[in-house]
Each structure stands twice: as C-alpha cells, then as structure tokens.
C-alpha cells in the first residue's frame, strides 16, 4: 500500500487491514523521533489543524495538539465554552466558518454519534474523528492495537478481552474492529445490561463471567465505568460491579504472566481496575499515551498524502 487514499478518518470499520498496518508502521517512525532532542518535523508546515472539541477531553485533545505541533502545523483550538457554540450556532455553521478560514484538518470530538460523518459529507476539509458518541474512537483503537503490537510483535492469533460498559463505549467498538482486522480473537465481558447480544454479529465472543476468560487472555482492555450508569439500572452498585468485573490483584495472578493490561483512561482506580494492577509491569497505560501521539502524527502524515515510512532516517 503506497499511501492512505482517503480524505477522512471517521471509523475503523471502513479501514482495510493494509491501511491499519500502514498507520502502525509509520507510527513507529514518529515514535522514534521522540527520543531526539528536536521532536518536530516539517510534514504539515503551512497546514492548519483545527481541534473542535464538543466534549471535555484531556488526553485525546492534548495528544492531537501535540501531534499537530510536532508536525509543524498551525493549530487552532475551539472549545465549546469559548466559541459561539454557546450562542447556539449549529455544528455545520461553525465548521463552515472554520473552513472559510481555510482549515485543512478538522479534528472533532462530539457527544452525538456520527457527527464527524455528517461533517465529512458536507465539507471539503479532512475530518478526523476524535470520538463520536458511543460510535467510534478510531485513533484510540489504532493506538491500542499499536501498543499491543509493540509488546507482542503481532496481533495474529492473540486473544484479547474487552471488559466493562461495552454498550456505551466508542473505544470498545473501535477496538473490536481494529483487533479483528489484525487477526486477533476478541471476547467481550460485562453485565448483559451493558453488553447487547447484537455485538456477537461483529464475530466476537460474549461472556458475563470475567474469571472464565482471564487465564486465556493475551491482552485485556479495562473500560472506564461511568458511575451514572447505575442510575439507569444498568448495574446495582459499584461494589457489585467491582466484585464481578474489576481487574483485581487476585485476578491478575490467574492471568498469563505476560498479559498486557490496557485502560483508555481516565481510570477509576479501585472500581474497574485495582491500584496495584494499574501500576504493575503488565499495565501499559502510560505507554499508550506516548503511542497515541505517534499514531496521530502518523494519521496526519498519511492523510496529507505521505508515503510509507519504513526506516528511521538517522541523519
């Protein structure tokens, strides 16, 4: 595959396995840059990246900003609190305004599923989905896959678990697509109220008992549990959730020695993941943050028409 021939990155579903591999391979090049004293390259010099965040975000937003800056792009941040969004301007009008100022890339985070798809149909700029509703968080899916690749070399034949509130998780949806496309076996685990049967159509296994699958897993992603789901009667109490679905120190002992433990953050320590587990050598939670910047640089680079980067240029 010579380049990423697409305008937008909206979801993983529409990416081919080759495109995913291309993104991961180039990400490795950009990650190696981080060890240098000068971490910027002029890939996007003269281009304008606009980060449009309609939902609070810390790590994803900073990660995109840093990725754009390390590629020498001009960066604009639009956050809901300071923009005319509070004056009731529609999304499409806001984006047309940004486009009139010649933004080349719109990075959008939005609480409504498919908002980035809606934009991509109506504007010329490249749209990068930084998370839409419960639908997709493609850069997270890619960085999760990249992080497992770093540890394991390949995803082919690995058994990966995703645990927690699958129903309301865009990370789970993007992870499933990415892991499956790279050849892994995926098992989802959570209470039935947060894990609809329809997920089986993705070609994944479903279980309600974490202890049944843990010993077989090569990697596990512990999703953040939203405390407000309790009010919707999705689960009776945080205590019961922890007993049934948390990755505790005891449970970690029953896992493979080299299991990779992930968490998309921010963590509820002591709820879905125990303190000791989050800080154990199996956990790659901070490594994922570093990788996130590299993966997003790779995406900007490839969307701008960049060719595959296989080797590090050691100048």
């Amino acid at each position: 595959m010579e380049s990423l021939e697409r305008k937008d990155l909206l979801d993983i579903e529409s990416l081919s396995t080759e495109e995913i591999e291309l993104i991961c391979n180039s990400a490795k090049y950009f990650k190696d840059l981080f060890t240098r004293s000068v971490k910027t390259v002029p890939v996007l010099r003269g281009k304008t990246v606009c980060c449009l965040f309609y939902e609070p975000s810390t790590r994803t937003k900073i990660s995109f900003e840093l990725a754009a800056k390390r590629l020498s792009a001009d960066l604009i941040n639009v956050t809901v609190a300071t923009s005319s969004v509070v004056k009731g301007e529609s999304l499409i009008d806001t984006v047309h305004t940004l486009e009139a100022m010649k933004a080349d890339y719109i990075v959008i985070r939005h609480a409504a599923s498919l908002a980035p798809h809606f934009l991509s149909k109506n504007i010329k700029a490249s749209v990068i989905n930084a998370g839409d509703g419960f639908h997709a968080h493609p850069t997270q899916g890619l960085l999760d896959a990249y992080s497992i690749l770093e540890r394991k070399g390949s995803l082919q034949g690995l058994h990966i678990g995703i645990v927690g509130d699958i129903k309301h998780s865009r990370v789970a949806r993007s992870d499933i697509w990415t892991f499956k496309k790279l050849g892994a076996k995926v098992t989802l685990c959570g209470p039935p109220t947060l894990l609809p049967d329809e997920f089986s159509i993705y070609g994944v296994d479903i279980t309600y008992n974490l202890d049944d699958i843990l010993p077989d897993l090569d990697a596990v992603n512990m999703l953040r549990i939203q405390k407000e789901r309790q009010q919707g009667s999705h689960f009776p109490s945080l205590r019961e959730y922890h007993r049934q679905f948390a990755l505790t120190t005891e449970r970690l002992k029953k896992c493979k020695k080299d299991i990779v433990v992930m968490h998309p953050g921010p963590m509820n320590r002591g709820i879905e993941i125990d303190d000791m587990v989050a800080d154990s050598p199996n956990a790659i939670i901070n490594e994922e943050v570093t990788n996130g910047v590299a993966v997003r640089m790779s995406i900007f680079y490839l969307l701008s028409g960049g060719k595959p980067l296989e080797e590090i240029d050691k100048d």
Partner: peptide, 10 residues
C-alpha cells in the same frame, strides 16, 4: 434498536 444501532453507537 438492533445490529445497526449497536454498530453505529446510536
């Protein structure tokens, strides 16, 4: 509610 709503996160 069905396969598509699950897929699209709606």
């Amino acid at each position: 509610e069905g396969y598509n709503s699950v897929l699209l996160g709606l």
